[in-house]
């Protein structure tokens, strides 16, 4: 009987001491957490895609609260989420520019053809490093799908040898653009009305030989455009999305149909 009492006392006293020590440590080492951080984190999508340049959504929330990042740093958030974050942070009048990825190449299997028999690792970056020209066109999509692997939203797929973005699923995080060794993927403003689906800087005859969907730099689009939104530089048309009004006259005139509705 006495043994039980002693044991209970010892355990009880030790428990009290440890409890007191824990309380003291908790007070001493208390780290102040901004409660806004948790609220902002709630608004972020939680994919940890890294499109904002931070290590993930937790890091992004901390950066927003510390003022190291803008409230609209997340490219994936929709307008409502951005407004909520602005409300939490007490910032007004934040503009959200929704972006989306667009593959500047339409060189599918029927438009261009395979030049050499590449049998190495099925990865665009490996293929580029091998130095072998896989397709007739030196600038176009390789179709091994490094971007497909990078996409966290299942929004990009390789169809007929060229990558295509699904605009409904794309959040504009830009991860595909960062892995493409040919730098084919451009982040367009969400309301872009026309885009050039070609990246070839080769001269017209070379492009024609390599691919039937390539921009040959003929400047017909420049002449058509009333808004002066298209310029041809390095044998390749480029559209100023701010000026473009979406009249689609360039699309009708383009002999290769290289300008498309994104």
């Amino acid at each position: 009987m006495q043994g039980i009492v002693i044991a209970t006392l010892i355990v009880g006293v030790i428990g009290l001491l440890i409890g007191a020590a824990l309380v003291a440590a908790g007070k001493k080492f208390y780290v102040e957490v901004d409660e806004r951080e948790a609220l902002v984190r709630e608004c972020l999508p939680g994919n940890n895609c890294g499109g904002c340049g931070q290590a993930g959504c937790d890091a992004a929330a901390a950066a927003i609260v510390n003022g190291e990042a803008e409230v609209n740093v997340c490219p994936v958030c929709n307008e409502k989420a951005i407004q909520e974050i602005s409300a939490i942070m007490g910032v007004d009048g934040v503009q959200t520019v929704k972006k989306r990825a667009f593959v500047r190449c339409a060189g599918t299997c029927e438009k261009t053809s395979v030049k050499c028999n590449y049998v190495g690792i099925r990865d665009c970056r490996s293929a580029v490093m091998s130095g072998l020209p896989v397709w007739e066109c030196d600038y176009g999509c390789l179709g091994f799908g490094s971007c497909v692997e990078a996409c966290a939203f299942d929004a990009i797929h390789v169809r007929d040898g060229a990558a295509v973005v699904d605009p409904d699923k794309c959040t504009g995080c830009g991860r595909c653009a960062s892995v493409c060794p040919k730098n084919l993927i451009e982040l367009l403003p969400g309301d872009a009305k026309a885009a050039v689906a070609c990246s070839s800087k080769a001269r017209g005859p070379e492009v024609k030989k390599a691919c039937s969907a390539g921009c040959i730099g003929c400047k017909l689009c420049t002449k058509q455009c009333e808004a002066e939104a298209i310029q041809v530089e390095n044998n390749l048309a480029g559209i100023d999305y701010d000026k473009c009004v979406g009249c689609e006259k360039c699309m009708e005139k383009c002999p290769a149909k290289a300008i498309v509705r994104p």
Binding site: I121, R125, M129
Partner: peptide, 12 residues
Amino acid sequence: PLMQLFKQAKAE
């Protein structure tokens, strides 16, 4: 394809 893997890893 070991050597190709290593070449790519080194380059990246």
